[in-house]
């Protein structure tokens, strides 16, 4: 590569001098940009960044999950720019105005909220957005479909959930996103998939399920929705109808008081998960238990996507 044709590297809007043979990480650090980094060998993935424009060298995506590759994530330490490239910190997406179009109760405690945005968010079902009400209070919610469908658990005393429960169609909000790497990527359409979550962890899973079916996924898809008891389930009619329509889809409501803990139930149904793909969503405790169970069952770590809902504003 001659220096006359050296590629131009940008960090957001700032041009970064890139010497011949430099990795993007070396160039960025030399320019005084504080990129988190550790091993400098593509193993620790600390220096994950997102390409906003330009060609991503294939070597820079070594070892990344498909969902990260699909969003143009790369490892700065493995990236030797071949062409002009603009990099940025791992994405938080854009912030755009939106308004509430519809809200209805899916159960005693789960409110379905639909939003319309002033421009497309460019999300994939299963990713999440942060919703801000006019006074600036923000909460993150997973996106349950192609449209901006959210499942909001009403929390006693919860500032946002109670506000949404009282909100009217047309009420203005701001949304920021999309974020998260828990979504369907086509890959092998015959690969068996296991989707498991509890509570409103169903929201991203419902989005991923519909996305996979729409994209023609042919392999078996098992959806486990965990709840303490019947009252914790929702969308049961819709999911049963989908199971009747799609022979490769199995819906498995899992009640703690009837079926025991969800990870054990999954192990009983599927003692061997080698070659499967998994999605786990819900509160961090259940997500960690499920993720570990799928991994110990033989699922490859790279084939497991997890989204743990944090109780506070930040995800």
């Amino acid at each position: 590569m001659s220096s006359a044709n050296s590629p131009v590297l940008h960090w957001e809007d700032t041009p970064v001098p890139c010497l011949e043979g430099d990795t993007a990480l070396e160039a960025l650090l030399r320019a005084g940009i504080a990129i988190p980094h550790s091993c400098r060998a593509g193993a620790c993935q600390s220096c994950l960044v997102q390409a906003k424009s330009g060609a991503v060298p294939a070597a820079a995506q070594q070892g990344l999950k498909d969902s990260l590759r699909a969003q143009n994530y790369l490892l700065a330490c493995l990236c030797r720019p071949e062409q002009d490239l603009t990099l940025a910190p791992p994405g938080q997406g854009v912030r755009i105005p939106a308004f509430l179009t519809e809200a209805d109760w899916l159960s005693d405690s789960v409110l379905r909220v639909r939003l319309a945005a002033s421009e497309p968010l460019g999300h994939r079902p299963g990713q999440y957005l942060t919703l801000f009400r006019p006074d600036g209070l923000g909460r993150s919610y997973s996106i349950a479909g192609d449209d901006l469908e959210l499942h909001v658990r009403r929390i006693p005393g919860g500032a946002m959930s109670n506000w949404l429960a009282e909100a009217q169609p047309g009420d203005a909000v701001t949304i920021q996103g999309p974020a998260g790497d828990c979504f369907y990527t086509p890959g092998d359409p015959t690969q068996p998939m296991l989707l498991a979550g509890a509570g409103t962890g169903l929201a991203p899973l419902f989005g991923i399920l519909r996305d996979a079916l729409r994209q023609g996924h042919q392999g078996p898809i098992w959806l486990y929705h965990g709840a303490l008891n019947e009252r914790g389930l929702y969308l049961t009619t819709e999911l049963q109808a989908m199971a009747a329509e799609y022979p490769n889809f199995a819906y498995r409501p899992a009640l703690l008081d009837r079926d025991g803990p969800l990870p054990e139930l999954i192990s009983r149904d599927h003692p061997k998960l080698n070659g499967w793909r998994g999605f786990v969503c819900g509160d961090p405790t259940i997500v960690n238990m499920l993720r570990k169970r799928l991994f110990l069952g033989g699922m490859a770590s790279r084939a497991i996507s997890a989204d743990a809902f944090l109780p506070a504003t930040l995800k």
Partner: peptide
């Protein structure tokens, strides 16, 4: 688990005599 796997990859790269 994801962070732990990344750490284990760094560890393996190191004890394999690799560039970590």
């Amino acid at each position: 688990m994801d962070r732990q796997i990344a750490k284990q990859k760094s560890f393996l790269t190191m004890v394999f005599g690799g560039p970590v």
